[in-house]
Design a protein around this nucleic acid. Structure first.
Lengths: 162, 162
DNA sequence: CGAACTCTCACGTTGCGTTATTGTAA
DNA sequence: TTTACAATAACGCAACGTGAGAGTTC
């Protein structure tokens, strides 16, 4: 009875190159995001190589999806921080107010949570604005590209007809 | 009999601020593009204010549409340069080879035009690749935003239910 | 063992943002 | 003449790109 397929955790650890390929980012970007405090590999190899778990990769992928929204790295970090604080608070809040509901106690906790929510909603609003712009841009670029293809067609007719 | 509405050419000249507002760019960007040789106001006011014609604005708008493709400013300049050379050559070519077609003369002209066309087509290919990516990004961002709204909804339920 | 991958500096680049100061337009 | 808009110049900055030189992994 060998304990071979018991833990597959070490197998799911990826080096930075693998991660970069999977999420379609440059290695430099991932390291830069680390310098800016956005991501951190959950472990390192004995020799110092960054090793990323699937969770780490998921976080990076999330950031990469967020990227076209043109937030600064600081804002992206802030946003992920809010998510964490909010989910952490959700747990404690669950235990604390099981049946007691209106007026749970001191307002400070509620306020901090409310504040976080407001910030989050602000980010969401900005994100949706930006998403709108992105859609517009796609339309504009489509327009541009098709116009360019038209011109190339005409120029091609002059250069090498038939 | 005043000669008032005779010429409306000066009326169609816009200052940089107006242009910036119309094409949704910063004034700084337009000036920067000028420094990089991408656009140039077709005239200046006596005092030195940049004055843009409708053609100038069209060019700027074209560049703005091109912008999301993430070419460098040098590449964008190059692309517009190709367009101009190609359309200029189309005219002379029209006159030159009215009925004569196979083997028009020395190959240098044909080669330069062919080269331009190749370059143009290269840019078009890159543009279409990038357009694809843009579409993907929109999908990813939509995904991201909707996930975020979901989370905000849940957090909101915890914070201020009903 | 070598080829490929990664590490940490550290400087370079792109595309503007941002004053600061001074002149122009209506 | 005020008030808003513009010009030039120059420094600043975010988000990486790009080696250099040395160690690590397989």
């Amino acid at each position: 009875m060998p304990d071979e397929p018991v833990t597959d955790s070490p197998r799911t650890l990826l080096q930075i190159g693998e991660v970069a390929a999977r999420v379609d980012l440059s290695i430099r970007s991932i390291r830069h995001w680390e310098e800016m405090g956005l991501v951190r590999p959950s472990s390192r190899s004995p020799g110092g190589f960054r090793l990323y778990s699937e969770e780490d990769v998921a976080r990076i992928k999330l950031l990469r999806y967020m990227k076209p929204l043109n937030f600064t790295l600081g804002q992206m970090r802030h946003l992920l921080e809010i998510r964490e604080l909010l989910s952490a608070e959700a747990e404690t809040s669950d235990r604390e107010s099981a049946l007691i509901w209106p007026r749970t106690g001191h307002a400070s906790d509620v306020d901090s949570g409310t504040r976080l929510l407001q910030d989050l909603e602000h980010y969401i609003d900005r994100a949706e604005e930006r998403l709108e712009k992105l859609r517009d841009q796609v339309a504009e670029v489509e327009d541009f590209v098709s116009r360019l293809r038209e011109e190339a067609r005409h120029a091609g007719d002059g250069q090498r007809p038939r």
